[in-house]
């Protein structure tokens, strides 16, 4: 029995650029009719190169920007922010973690306020309760209560990303969009954050839409994989299917371009070098 937390049907997003005094307006099709669905507790990874529309799609799913056309369902309810606006309940259901942990925290806001703000805006909880919840969440993401009164600049990149994750989870969202959450972090910290995400998913039955260009990360965390190329979903299937048998030529190129760091392949490469 699976419940679809998020479903997109034929989502299109066009941007109009130019339109200055001397130039005609141009339309850029950033996302060209993408469909997908994610079940509760699962992870959909969206892979693709820079500028292929994955972040645009992420913004649409997070209800930041409206889609030009297409239908988006969250928890079975149709959402159209261009027409109906956005209710508080809907806002709470989807949260996002951004790529750059240095830009996604307000430099003038203490961590406690960062975590308390979503509660303050969306719920009528008193300050005392907000504080307790924020403390609890800090512990959950591997930070301590001593961090409550500090400012973002006092944290490392990995810690900031933990804070961003904590903020996203404060409202108990059913869907968490992760827009390249580890690509700004170094490798060992990447692993820590990914493990944290996996643990949180188990604990809260979270659904992830995980955007990345790093295939090794995707292989670790995804259940389903969607490969995007110039705004289109060129490949969509379970992780095993996509990794074992890439159908589209772009997917194949992508896999071939992934650097290999296992011992066997390094030895093979050295042997090749020696032979040459």
């Amino acid at each position: 029995m699976s419940i679809k937390v998020v479903e997109g049907k034929n989502i299109v997003r066009d941007y109009h650029v130019g339109g200055g005094l001397f130039r005609a307006q141009r339309t850029v099709h950033a996302v060209k009719g993408v469909s997908f669905s994610v079940d509760k507790g699962k992870t959909l990874a969206i892979v693709g190169e820079s500028g292929c529309g994955k972040s645009t799609l992420a913004r649409i799913i997070t209800l930041i920007d409206p889609a030009t056309s297409g239908e988006l369902f969250i928890d079975g309810n149709k959402v159209d922010i261009a027409k109906d606006g956005l209710s508080k309940e809907m806002r709470r259901k989807v949260q996002i973690v951004f790529q750059n942990p240095y830009g996604s925290l307000n430099p003038r806001q203490k961590i406690g306020d960062v975590l308390g703000e979503p509660l303050l805006i969306n719920t009528g909880k008193p300050a005392e309760e907000r504080r307790d919840l924020a403390m609890k969440m800090l512990k959950k993401v591997g930070l301590g209560p001593e961090h409550y009164n500090r400012y973002p600049h006092m944290f490392s990149g990995g810690q900031r990303q933990r804070i961003a994750i904590a903020r996203a989870l404060m409202l108990n969202p059913s869907l968490l969009v992760l827009d390249e959450p580890v690509s700004a972090l170094d490798l060992s910290v990447q692993a820590q954050v990914l493990n944290l995400l996996a643990d949180l998913q188990d604990e809260f039955q979270l659904t992830y839409v995980f955007i990345s260009h790093d295939l090794s990360v995707v292989r670790y965390i995804a259940d389903d994989v969607m490969v995007m190329y110039f705004g289109e979903a060129v490949e969509y299937g379970s992780r095993e299917e996509v990794f074992a048998d890439p159908k589209h030529s772009y997917t194949k190129t992508l896999f071939a371009a992934t650097p290999r760091a296992d011992v066997a392949s390094i030895k093979a490469r050295l042997a090749k070098k020696k032979a040459a």
Binding site: T62, L63, I64, K88, R91, R92, V94, Q95, I96, F98, Q99, N100, G103, S104, L105, N106, P107, R108, E117, P118, I121, N122, A164, R167, L171
Partner: peptide, 23 residues
Amino acid sequence: EYVVAAKVAGAGHIRQMLRTILP
């Protein structure tokens, strides 16, 4: 991004302007 994050957290225009951006 932190402004977008505030928006995602549900902050309205006034709050975004005065509390998030202005400081």
